[in-house]
Amino acid sequence: MLGKSLASPLLTFDSRTCFCFSPQPDLTTTAPIVNVSLSNGVQPHVIRGSWTSILSSRKWELRSTTQKHNFILSDVERKTWEACRQALSVFKFSVDEEDKILGKAFGQIHSPYWGEERKKEVPTYELVNEVVDYLRSLNLSDEDLSKLLKKFPEVLGCRLEDELRTNVQVLEKEWGIKGKSLRNLLLRNPKVLGYNVDCKGDCMAQCTRCWVRF
């Protein structure tokens, strides 16, 4: 859900209550317009707050109604993000699921998979679509891809040439895994697509991306 980013109001409300803050350009020391929409007909317990901030530029907060995943995007970034959602629309995910997949893949939502290495990024439609098209080329149907993306959303943030293509080549050359065997492996352990280190038993503290897990 899109909402106005504001300075720390005190809010206590039912977990399924939705708030829409209407953007107001060039406002100073003015409380925003608040539209309250209740999904279950229950009134929120306490709603109170005041804001005295100068809104110098528009920022948008993407807030899931079912998950606590919040991140701030500018107008331009928001449009780019919505385009990336379109790249995933064929899989019939909900908006919340699309935000979670993209957020984990590109650092907007913390993922233990990346550790501290992943910086926040707003991807392009072309980047997301390119990865999806490559995954399709590995004999994965849209149903397969839907399962894979839910299980390992971070795959969209992996480098296509240096990680995805390279790892598929390693699997084929080193272990003879290709075709149907590759499809079965990716559905069982899709994280293999993002492995980028091999500690060879001497731990490098990058276990989530190490071939030793294979």
Rank of each mutant, 00 (worst) to 15 (best):
Ser22Lys: 06
Arg16Glu: 15
Gly49Met: 03
Val42Ala: 15
Val42Lys: 15
Ser56Tyr: 09
Asp26Lys: 11
Asn35His: 10
Arg16Pro: 09
Ser57Leu: 01
Arg63Trp: 00
Leu11Ile: 08
Leu62Val: 06
Thr17Ile: 06
Gln24Trp: 06
Asn40Gln: 14
Leu27Phe: 08
Ser53Met: 13
Trp51Leu: 14
Phe19Arg: 01
Ser39Phe: 01
Asp14Thr: 12
Gly41Pro: 11
Trp51Asn: 15
Ser64Ile: 01
Phe13Ser: 05
Leu55Glu: 15
Thr12His: 01
Cys20Ile: 14
Val42Arg: 14
Thr30Lys: 07
Arg58His: 11
Thr28Cys: 04
Glu61Asn: 02
Ser57Pro: 01
Thr28Lys: 12
His45Cys: 04
Val46Lys: 02
Ser39Tyr: 00
Arg16Lys: 13
Ile54Glu: 00
Ile54Leu: 06
Thr65Tyr: 09
Ser8His: 03
His45Phe: 04
Ile54Thr: 10
Gln24Asn: 07
Ala31Tyr: 10
Ile33Gln: 05
Ser15Leu: 06
Cys20Arg: 13
Pro9His: 04
Ile47Leu: 09
Ser37Phe: 06
Arg63Asn: 03
Gln24Lys: 06
His45Gln: 01
Thr52Ile: 10
Phe19Asp: 04
Val42Gly: 10
Gly49Glu: 01
Thr52Pro: 11
Lys59Leu: 02
Ser57Lys: 11
Val34Trp: 02
Pro25Val: 00
Asn40Asp: 15
Trp51Ser: 15
Pro32Gly: 05
Asn40Val: 09
Leu55Gln: 15
Asp26Phe: 09
Trp60Tyr: 09
Asn35Ile: 12
Pro32Lys: 07
Gly49Phe: 01
Pro44Lys: 07
Ser57Asn: 12
Thr17Asp: 04
Glu61Met: 02
Ser37Ala: 09
Thr28Phe: 07
Ser22Met: 03
Pro9Glu: 03
Val42Tyr: 10
Glu61Cys: 04
Ile54Cys: 01
Ala7His: 10
Leu10Ile: 07
Leu11Trp: 02
Leu55Asp: 13
Arg63His: 01
Thr65Trp: 08
Ala31Asp: 15
Pro23Ser: 05
Glu61Gly: 03
Asp26Met: 12
Leu10Asp: 00
Arg58Gln: 15
Thr17Pro: 04
Leu11Cys: 03
Pro25Cys: 04
Leu11Pro: 00
Trp51Tyr: 11
Cys20Gln: 10
Ser8Gln: 04
Ala7Ile: 14
Cys18Glu: 12
Leu55Tyr: 10
Arg63Ile: 08
Gly49Tyr: 00
Cys18Ile: 14
